[in-house]
């Protein structure tokens, strides 16, 4: 009966993942598996994207108009759902990366202070 939004603690992580997804797609249309692999690879195997977070993030971005989705053939010639950045999505990515830069710099200042 009672169900409240459970956002607070996860919001940073969720927002960050969305940013990473947008970044991954900035190189061109990709399917979900490739997005996860790319992030895993580029982060030197430090970041492992859980499928349980990836797909809801992709769908949420699609729903809000930052991504377009269409079905196409994958590299091994199988039908896969490809996501592509929209103009809105590119704008969003810019805003997010600036925000992230400011945030990480700020965190760095705090952590390096003696």
């Amino acid at each position: 009966m009672i169900r409240e939004e459970s956002t607070d603690s996860g919001s940073l992580l969720q927002g960050t993942l969305e940013m990473l997804v947008l970044k991954a797609l900035a190189r061109g249309p990709q399917h979900g598996y490739a997005v996860a692999e790319w992030i895993h690879h580029v982060s030197h195997q430090l970041l492992k994207v859980e499928e349980g977070a990836l797909y809801p993030a992709l769908h949420r971005l699609e729903m809000r108009g930052f991504l377009n989705a269409e079905w196409g053939a994958s590299e091994n010639n199988r039908r896969a759902k490809f996501y592509r950045l929209t103009a809105e999505g590119t704008k969003r990515l810019d805003a997010e990366s600036q925000r992230w830069a400011r945030l990480s710099a700020a965190v760095a200042f705090v952590m390096q202070s003696s």
Partner: peptide
């Protein structure tokens, strides 16, 4: 059906 296809594809690649 699209959702399950998408997940199926992912599982296959894994």
């Amino acid at each position: 059906s699209e959702m399950s296809e998408e997940l199926e594809f992912h599982r296959e690649r894994l």
